[in-house]
Amino acid sequence: MMSYLEEHYELIHKTPRLFALHVTREQLLDTLHQITTHTSFDTLSQLTCTDWIEEERFELGYMLTNALRSHNLMLKCSIARDKVTMPSLALLFAQAEVMERELHEMFGIGFEGNETLYDFALEGWCDIPPMRREFDTLAYVNAHYDFREGREDNLDVKEEIKKRKAAAKSAKETPSGA
């Protein structure tokens, strides 16, 4: 099983049971097809997405598992953050449908061929997709929720230490000056 992968791809050994390999968007379907037919990695167990905003790319991770559930192989595919469509895997793996639906909602990635890209967990969301790094959670929370009343007496400890030091200093100086 491993020999086929070693021969044909640049395999990254992450742990003895976890491997990774990089594919481009165009190679993805073909590579998946090759791997599922020639090796025992034939189950999609997770579809991940990481936003590398500073490098202007999303990194999708197609986590494959073998039938014995003993090894994992991750196909990593970087795509641009603005041109965000991928071919859907719904025909290859039934479970991909809902995973793609989630990523569509959370990152705004389109999956061509997936018919179910409607609301997943968010209802009527028209802001930018929330898992993108540019979505500012803190600003959103401050705009939509209040702090409990009665917490205005919170003090900045660094300021207080400075004030106390200054007060102690002037207290020392006053008696000596008098």
Partner: peptide, 26 residues
């Protein structure tokens, strides 16, 4: 759990997959 670090104190991405995601839909 998928976890990616980025060299900072925060986790860049942590994605959870529980059994229900697949079981409840497909």
């Amino acid at each position: 759990y998928y976890m990616a670090g980025d060299g900072s104190e925060m986790i860049r991405r942590m994605q959870v997959k529980g059994p229900s995601l697949i079981h409840a839909f497909s």
